[in-house]
Design a protein around this nucleic acid. Structure first.
Length: 491
RNA sequence: CGGGGUGUAGCGCAGCCCGGUUAGCGCGCGUCGUUCGGGACGACGAGGUCGGAGGUUCGAAUCCUCUCACCCCGACCA
């Protein structure tokens, strides 16, 4: 990594925005805090969707769709949800417009006021559980394993492309189970699925764990999460899986008759990941030359750039290039031949580097003569001349190698930026000067957590899943602790 | 909602403090020619109600008042 992020805030932020714009991923829109996801950015999201959707279906889930509008009263049903849930929501109060009498344009028709306001969903637990009530009578109706791909709106104070926008795209799973055990298993299944996706597809290593009470989802008994480390040393919550207990079933009166003939409330989970993952991808892998995409999520895995001086050479080189393109396509590789005459090779090289295309093949008259091509890999920027024979297999291997290398690189970065702190002074020093994950002892109190946040901006990203039992003293209060938790400044 | 900043060509900016020809520069865009193995070069050309409203003045991008929008930093959060 060539970038120096010692003055983290501004530089990194600028660098990030530059990549989003220059790679053609997104741009800010006319609407405050919303973004336009451009075709290339959306193509990455589609690749993510496809992979996740397959994983959901392979584990028995189905897709469904619920309304974007939720009656305001639904939000009052679950006490903790009401208490803890952000109130920054878009509210629909009227249903008609009219021409202004003074001819100044269109105004809201005040006579068309809704009896009950509708909330543009910030998340769908309430409307879904209201619906599930009628879906569940008996244990035979369970489990319900439903996911929806949707947009949600949260009127955030401060926004950032992909990481936090007013409207964002996501997937939210909402499941109903007969037993606590089964619901917990579902929560873990999804958490592991998310972690697999992050590591195998995004090439981003993640830590798994539970949230502290402060950071827990409003209405959940337990929130499990995956956390990734970005190149500026800040943590990013990449996915959450909530164990909701029977809270929502009670609030929305969702009951079933068990095998034993008893009437019981169902057990619930909810889980989701969003277009924030695109932001994670950018921040985890990009370099000074732009975006770097892992082959498994790259809309274009291989680009072929022909090099030529005149019409004859163009024809010769392109016919060769087309044959290569066909070869690679047969292998199932997403390949693009950029034979546009309106841009020069050097321009194209830079263009595809911004866009993070994993492999670039250049072919010119010299290559045609020698039966070779020049292959450049985006992750290392290395160039090498290959024989054309058996190119399909070579490229296939290369794509795997790049995917693997990107993961290893990100993992090495995380290891380098993971520290242990045993004293308050040490802790503050690491958080303020180095960044990264800090494993430290904590007394388990919300109060201490809050104090630490106020003094260092660092929060508990997660309480590690696998025991990590180690006796120690809280870095802040000095009280006894039974295991380290992971702190970091976060997005 | 607090604190700071910016609005001038599609994009990035200079000019403003200290008012004065026809408002500039870089990139991009168009035409033509030479080029084409790492963002080519030359010539010519198109493109602006200087965010908006009001005021001061012989004269406003520049000074004053109001207003709108966006960005950054906090609080909030996937």
């Amino acid at each position: 990594m060539a970038k120096d992020f010692s003055t983290r805030e501004e530089n990194y932020s600028k660098w990030y925005n530059d990549i989003v714009q220059r790679a053609g991923l997104a741009e800010s829109s006319a609407v405050r805090g919303c973004m336009v996801i451009k075709p290339y950015g959306y193509a990455i999201w589609e690749k993510m969707q496809a992979a996740l959707d397959r994983m959901f279906k392979d584990t028995g889930h189905s897709n469904a769709y619920f309304p974007i509008f939720i009656p305001k009263s639904f939000f009052s049903r679950e006490a903790a949800h009401v208490e803890g849930f952000a109130k920054e929501c878009a509210v629909v109060t009227h249903y008609r417009l009219k021409n202004a009498e003074d001819g100044s344009g269109i105004v809201v028709d005040e006579t068309a006021k809704l009896e009950e306001e509708l909330i543009v969903r910030p998340t769908s637990e309430t409307i879904i559980w209201d619906t599930y009530r009628s879906w569940v009578q008996s244990y035979r109706d369970l489990p319900i394993l439903v996911n929806q791909w949707a947009n949600v709106v949260r009127w955030e104070m401060r926004t950032r492309m992909f990481l936090r926008t007013t409207e964002f795209l996501w997937q939210e799973g909402h499941t109903a189970h007969a037993t606590e055990k089964e619901a917990l298993e579902e929560t873990h299944l999804i958490l592991n699925l998310y972690a697999d996706f992050a590591e195998k597809f995004m090439a981003v290593p993640v830590l798994k764990g539970t949230k502290s009470v402060n950071e827990r989802f409003a209405g959940a008994l337990e929130t499990y999460c995956i956390e990734a480390l970005m190149q500026d040393g800040k943590a990013l919550q990449a996915g959450t899986s909530h164990f909701l207990g029977q809270n929502f079933a009670r609030a929305f009166d969702v009951k079933f008759s068990s095998k034993e003939g008893k009437l019981e409330h169902v057990w619930a989970t909810s889980w989701g990941v969003s277009t924030r993952l695109v932001g994670a991808l950018i921040m985890a892998h990009s370099d000074d030359h732009g975006l770097v995409l892992p082959p498994k999520l790259a809309p274009i895995q291989v680009v072929i750039v022909p090099i030529y001086k005149n019409k004859e050479q163009y024809d010769l080189v392109c016919s060769k290039a087309r044959a290569l393109e066909e070869d690679l396509r047969m292998k199932g590789i997403a390949v693009k031949l950029d034979d546009r005459d309106s841009y020069k090779p050097g321009w194209k090289f830079n263009e595809y580097e911004f866009k993070g295309v994993p492999v670039r093949i250049a072919i010119g008259p010299r290559d045609v003569e020698n039966g070779t091509v020049e292959i450049a890999r985006r992750d290392t920027l290395e160039k090498e001349v290959y024989q054309v024979a058996d190119l399909g297999n070579k490229v296939e291997h290369l794509l795997h190698a790049i995917q693997d290398n990107m993961y290893q690189k990100a993992l090495a970065f995380r290891e380098e930026n993971t520290h242990k702190a045993d004293t308050w002074r040490e802790f503050k020093d690491i958080i303020e000067n180095k960044g990264g994950f800090v494993w430290a002892h904590w007394d388990g109190s919300a109060e201490t957590e809050q104090r630490i946040k106020e003094e260092t901006k660092a929060t508990i990203r997660l309480i590690p899943m696998e025991g990590q039992s180690e006796k120690g003293k809280c870095i802040y209060s000095g009280k006894p602790s039974s295991g380290r938790v992971v702190f970091a400044q976060a997005y």
